[in-house]
Design a protein around this nucleic acid. Sequence first.
DNA 1: ATACGCATGTAAGATGTTACATGATTAA
DNA 2: TTAATCATGTAACATCTTACATGCGTAT
Lengths: 184, 184
Amino acid sequence: MSLRHALLGLLEDQPGSGYELTKRFELSLANVWSATHSQIYPELARMADAGLVVAGEEGARGRKEYRITPEGSAELRRWLTSGRNDRSIRNEGLLRAFFLWTLPDDEIAAYFQRERELALARLREFDELDRLIPWDRSGSDLMGRIVLEQGRRLAKGHAQWAAWAAGEIAAGRDATDLKGRIRS
Amino acid sequence: MSLRHALLGLLEDQPGSGYELTKRFELSLANVWSATHSQIYPELARMADAGLVVAGEEGARGRKEYRITPEGSAELRRWLTSGRNDRSIRNEGLLRAFFLWTLPDDEIAAYFQRERELALARLREFDELDRLIPWDRSGSDLMGRIVLEQGRRLAKGHAQWAAWAAGEIAAGRDATDLKGRIRS
DNA sequence: ATACGCATGTAAGATGTTACATGATTAA
DNA sequence: TTAATCATGTAACATCTTACATGCGTAT
């Protein structure tokens, strides 16, 4: 139930309406977690039922501002410290790579070349983000910079891996028929 | 619809029953993609309806062996070369990190310390796997080694990032009250 | 007046998880 | 004979995606 915890985390920083929280997903959480308003509105209602948040009076245009409750804060802390990172593994990029052997090897090389370029583009985006965000000295911004740094490292590592993989394919091309029936 | 493509990829290597494909998810795909038999059986039935696979006659204990069809192979290749990596971003680890500022900073440091240890344990597991798998010179094993290498790089990078982050927290501790209201 | 952005929701369908349910074969 | 493994499925529930639907407020 990570959507719930993402919402608790955002509300711990400051209260907000469903609409505004949707925007925060698009802006600050864009590279970490995605969610749309059609998920967020009903989830906020369920969280209110569970006592994790409360809605203030309706403002203009039916706007409802949610605040986190002490129970909500406790649940957030419980989630942060419970130590279990249990999302089942689903890495579409690696899944593709795993089956790439079914392609002719010039296409495999082209694939990794493109992966590398996409990763480098992502790296440039992160650098740009870092430049644009007016970081302050708050704890949330310190963690924001730490998360962004991991994004940068991941992108860089991905580019390097893709380049290395392209090299392996090129090296293997001479020694081995990739689609070969050479299985032992 | 990545489950479908994962199944096509596995069947491109060799035919198999639902039960056996479930095992292949647990063994070769364990660190890449997860799926359970309760997903796999109905999906294979749908794929047979769509003409991507065909079931042979029933064997012992009702065993049905599925083979990939030319249409299935074409669909696999289309997926591999269609270039769009569109999974919506969902990284629970980074999500947690993003909200860690709500904890006292000794707990943040402990969190990163544990992250580092878990990543190093993962790295050791990958090394062990690499040692145990009887790699051959086939294309599928070459790609298998390339994917495993990325697992190793990711784990190593994660450990380094966690160590770096712990250092940043320690450095910030002196300069800044992490939960501080110092927002500009 | 009208278009854009604010603001909230519902509905249908796809996908994933957990639990339930059954029975055959084989090795000890 | 009995426990483990092979083998297949269904059901209920949670979650996520995409599309549909409505109306207010504000600037041009």
